[in-house]
Amino acid sequence: MRQRLIMDVDTGIDDSLALLYLLASPEAEIVGIASTAGNVPAPQVAANNLAWLDVCKAGPIEVSLGSEAPLVIPLRTTEDTHGPQGIGYAVLPESARELSVRPASDMWVDLVREFPGEVIGLCTAPLTNLALALRREPALPQLLQRLVIMGGAFNYAGNTTPTAEWNVSVDPEAAKVVFDAFSAAPPDRRPIVCALDITETIEMHPAHVDRLAEIAGGASNPLVGYLSDAIRFYMEFHRDHNQGYIAHMHDPFAAAVALDPSLVTTRPATVDVELAGTLTRGMTVADLTGMWGRPPNVEIATTTEPAVFFDRLIERVGTFARNTYPADAQ
Rank of each mutant, 00 (worst) to 15 (best):
L5V: 08
M7K: 05
D10W: 06
I13F: 05
L19A: 04
L20C: 11
E27S: 12
V31D: 03
G32P: 00
A34T: 05
G38C: 07
N39V: 15
V40P: 01
V40Y: 01
Q44F: 06
V45R: 06
A47C: 08
L53R: 05
G59R: 09
I61P: 04
E68L: 12
T78M: 14
P84L: 15
Y89H: 08
V91R: 13
L92N: 02
P93R: 03
E98H: 10
E98R: 13
S100E: 13
L111M: 09
V119Q: 00
V119K: 00
V119E: 01
G121E: 01
G121Q: 06
L122F: 07
T128H: 09
A131C: 11
A133T: 08
A133E: 02
E137P: 09
L144C: 02
L144H: 03
A153M: 07
N159W: 06
T160W: 15
E165H: 15
W166V: 13
V168A: 08
V168S: 05
E173F: 11
A174V: 02
V177K: 00
V177R: 00
V178P: 00
F179S: 05
S183C: 08
A185T: 06
A185L: 15
R189L: 12
R190E: 03
I192W: 00
A195Q: 05
L196E: 00
D197Y: 14
P206G: 07
H208N: 13
V209S: 15
D210I: 15
D210S: 07
I215N: 06
I215E: 09
A216Y: 01
N221I: 07
D229C: 09
F233Q: 07
F237Q: 04
R239A: 10
H241C: 11
Q243F: 14
G244H: 06
Y245N: 12
M249N: 04
A254W: 08
L259Y: 01
L263R: 11
T265G: 10
V273S: 03
A276L: 14
A276K: 15
G277P: 05
T284R: 09
A286E: 04
L288N: 05
G293R: 14
P296H: 14
T303W: 12
T304K: 12
F310C: 04
G318P: 00
F320L: 08
Y325F: 12
Y325A: 03
P326G: 08
